[in-house]
Design a protein around this nucleic acid. Sequence first.
DNA 1: AACGTCACCAACCGCGTATAG
DNA 2: TCTATACGCGGTTGGTGACGT
Length: 583
Amino acid sequence: MKRKWRLLLNFRNWRFHDSTWLILSFTVQTKKFVDCFGPLNFITGLWKASLADHNFRQLTKMIDTATEAENTKTFRCRKNSPSVEEAGSGGNSSGGSALKKGPWTSAEDAILVDYVSKHGEGNWNAVQKHSGLSRCGKSCRLRWANHLRPDLKKGAFTPEEESCIIQLHAKMGNKWACMAAELPGRTDNEIKNYWNTRIKRLQRAGLPIYPPETSVQAMKECQKSQDMGSCREGEKNRHDASQKNCFDIPHEFKTLELNQGLLSCPHALLDLPASSILQKGVNSSHSFGFMFQAMHPQKRLRDLETPFCNCVGITTDSFPSFDPYEDDTYGKLGRTFWLSSPYDADLNVNNPSIVDVLLGSHALINGNSSSSEPIVAMKSELPSLQYSASHGGSWPIPPSPLPSLESFDTSIQTPLRDQKQSDCPSPRSSGLLEAIVYESQSLKILKNKSCPQISETSPMAGYTVESLPQSIAKWEACGDPISPFSQSAASVFGETLISRSSSDEPLSAEAMPGYKIKPEAVDWISLESDEKKDISSLQLECMRPDVLLDSFWFGQCIWHNKDQFITAMDMGQLLGDDTNRCN
DNA sequence: AACGTCACCAACCGCGTATAG
DNA sequence: TCTATACGCGGTTGGTGACGT
C-alpha cells in the first residue's frame, strides 16, 4: 500500500508540471475529492471505484504527511510558474505556501463568512492569514462580493432589472460595477454575464443590441446635456466623467453628439454603424445598438417580413414603437427587427440614397474606441474569404485587399460609391465586405453632406412600404446562395468569432493554453530509481483486465503525450490495485 | 444512448488606481 | 518622489447542465 501512495504522490507532483497537466484533465465529480484536493481533475469513475469515502481522508492525510519534503521541493521548483503553482495547489497545504483555486467549498464559504462577520469586509489578504483559508485575498473578496454577501439577490433577473440593465448599459457602457450599484443585490459579475449572454443571443438572432427606445432615450439625454452646455464643456470632461462618475455615455452616443446635425434628424438614428462593428467586433457590448444586424439567410426573412413593413413605416417624426422588453431576446423577431439589412442590394440599386442614409454612420466619424473593445480581435476576425470571394462578382471590388483595421479609417473613406454597381448587385461575398463598402460610401456621404442635407434628401420619407419586402423577395426569388442574405456580416462575424481560434490559426502549444505537448523529461528523470522500477514493474501488469480498463481512461494522456504513457498507466495501475483492495 | 452545441455561471487573470510607508 | 501593497474592475476562461441531433 505504501508503494501505491508513493506512486500517487509522484503523480500529484507531476501535475505541477505543465507538460503533465493534461494527464489530469479529467472531470471530477466526487465532491470529497474536490474538497480535499481542490479543482484537481481526476477520473471520477476510477476514483469512486478505488477509494471509499471513509478512507479518502486517510489517503490524503497520508499523502500529505509522507510527501511533505517532496512537496516543499516541488513548490520550490514551481515558484517560477505561479499560475501553475496556484493551479496545482491542492489547497490542503499548510503555511500558505500554496493558494487554492477553483470552486469554493461550503466549508470555505463558512470560514469566509465567519471571518467577515467578525472582522468586516476589506483587508482581504488578511483573511488568508487569520482564518486559515488557502485562498488569495482577491478570491476571497470575489467570493464574498458575488456570493456570500447577505444582501445579494439570488435568482434570475426580473424584467424590470433587465430593462434597467439595458438602459444602464446604453448610458454607461461596460461599467459593470457602476451598473451593479444601480441594481441593489446584483453583482457586476452577474450583470456582465447577463449582458454577454444577451449580446450573444441578440447577435445570433441578428437583432440590435439596444432597443430603439433605449437608444433614443440615451441620445436625448446626451443631447440634453449638450444643450445645457455640459457636452460642449469638452470631451475631456466627459472622458473624466467616464472614469469617475459612473454615468458615462458610451462613445457611440458621444459620437452622435459630434454629429449634431444628425441629431436633428431622427431617422438618421437608423444608421447602421457597420464600422462600429468592424471597429469593435460583434461581441462588443459597445457596439452601437442601432446597428443593423445583418440578417441570416432566407429563413429569417420570412420572420421579418412584418417588421420590415413596420420598419418602412418609420418616418422622420416617429420611430416604430414596441416594447423592447417584451421578451428577453426580442425573440419575436417580427416585432423587434425594425431595421432592415443594410446588405439589401436592391435597396442599393433602387434606392441608393436609402442605403446612404441607412448606412450613413455616425460611428464612421467616431475615431475613438473604447479601450476595452476588442479591436485587435476584430482585426483578426476579418474572414479572408470575403475578399477573395468578392473578386468573382459584380459587387464593388475594393481597390485593395481587405485592409487591416489600422488602416480601416482610411479604407472606408475610399470613394467606392463612385464605382459602378451592376444591375444585379449580388455580392460575391458575404456581409463584411459589403459593410466595408457601404461604410465607405456612407462615410463619403457623411463627409460631403451636412445633416440637414441628409434630412432633405433622405429617401426615408419617400420610401415606399413595398420596397423593402420586395427587395428581399427579389433576393429570395433569385435564390442566390451568395446573396447578401445568404451570409450576413453578422453571421460571418459570429461564426468566425466562435470558430476562429480553432480554424484560422495553426495549432500550437502557445495557441492552446494548457496543451503543452512537449513532455518534460525531468519528470521521469526526477523519479527515484526505485520508483522507476516500481513503475516499470507495474508496466508488466498492464495486461491485467482491470488495468486495461483503467488505461482506457487515460486515452487522452496517451494521445497527448505518449512519453507520459507510463505514468498514466502507472496511475491506472495504482487505481486498479486500489480497486481491488477496497473491494 | 452518444455526441455536439449552447447558455449560464463561477472564478481567474491582468491591469489600473489608490494608498501607505 | 518612489515603491510596495491592496483593492477594484473588466475581460476572459473553463466547468456544467440542458437541449437538440
